[in-house]
Simulated scan of single mutants.
Amino acid sequence: MSFIRSPKDVLSGLVFIALALIFAWQAKILPMGSSVRMGPGYFPMVLSGLMGLLGLIVLINGLRFDGDRTTSIAWRGVFFLTLSTVFFGFAMRPLGFLPTLAVTVFLSCLASQKFHLVTALAITAVMVAFSWGVFIVGLGLPIQLIGPWLGGY
C-alpha cells in the first residue's frame, strides 16, 4: 500500500509549493519595508507564504486522506488560462484596464468545458464592473481605463 492516498492532492500541493518558492525568489529582490510602511516586495512575499502554506496543507491532506487518482491533463484549461494571463500582461498598456480585463475574463471562461456564451458574457460584465469599483473608485488607483490603441490618452 502506498503512503500517498490522494495523488491528485499531493501533486497539487507540490505545484503550489513550487510556485510559491518561485514567486518568493522573484520577490526577494524588491525592498520589503515593514508592516507599517510596506515596500513593493512585502505583498508578493506574503502571498507567496500563504500559497506555500496552502500547498503544504493540500499536500498533507493528500498523504492522510483518500482521494481521486490523477487523470489526464485538462489541456484546454491550461491553454486558455495561460493565454489569458499572457494577454493581460502584454495588452494592459496599449488597450487599457477595462478592455484588457474584459478579454482576459472572457478567455478564462473559455477554459471551462461547460462554456456557455451568455454565462461568459455575464461573468465578464460583472468582473469588469467589480474590478472598476474596487480598483478605480474604491482604491483610487491611477490605472488607464482605455489605452492609446483605442483612443485613450
Rank of each mutant, 00 (worst) to 15 (best):
M1I: 13
F3W: 12
D9K: 14
V10S: 04
L11C: 14
L11W: 11
L11G: 13
L11K: 04
L14A: 12
L14D: 06
F16D: 01
F16C: 03
I17T: 02
I17K: 05
I17R: 02
A18V: 15
L19T: 09
A20G: 15
L21F: 13
W25R: 08
W25P: 03
Q26W: 11
K28C: 01
I29Y: 09
L30I: 02
P31L: 03
P31A: 13
P31Y: 01
M32T: 11
M32P: 00
G33W: 11
G33P: 01
S35L: 15
S35I: 12
V36G: 10
Y42C: 07
F43R: 01
L47S: 02
S48R: 00
L50Q: 00
M51G: 08
G52L: 04
L53P: 02
L53I: 06
L54P: 04
I57G: 04
I57E: 05
N61R: 15
G62Y: 00
D66M: 03
D66T: 10
D66Q: 12
R69K: 15
T71L: 10
S72C: 05
S72H: 09
I73D: 14
A74F: 10
W75R: 04
W75M: 15
G77F: 07
G77A: 12
V78R: 05
T82Y: 10
L83E: 08
S84D: 12
T85Y: 11
V86P: 08
F88M: 09
G89F: 10
G89S: 04
F90Y: 08
A91S: 13
A91N: 05
P94T: 06
F97A: 03
F97H: 05
T100V: 13
L101P: 00
L101M: 14
L101E: 11
A102K: 14
T104P: 03
F106W: 06
F106S: 02
L110Y: 03
A111K: 00
S112Y: 06
Q113S: 14
Q113G: 15
Q113W: 14
K114Q: 15
K114C: 05
V118R: 15
A120K: 02
A120N: 05
L121V: 08
L121Y: 03
I123W: 10
A125G: 12
V126I: 12
F130I: 08
F130L: 13
W132Y: 15
V134D: 10
I136N: 03
I136D: 05
V137H: 05
L139D: 11
I143S: 06
G151R: 14
G151A: 03
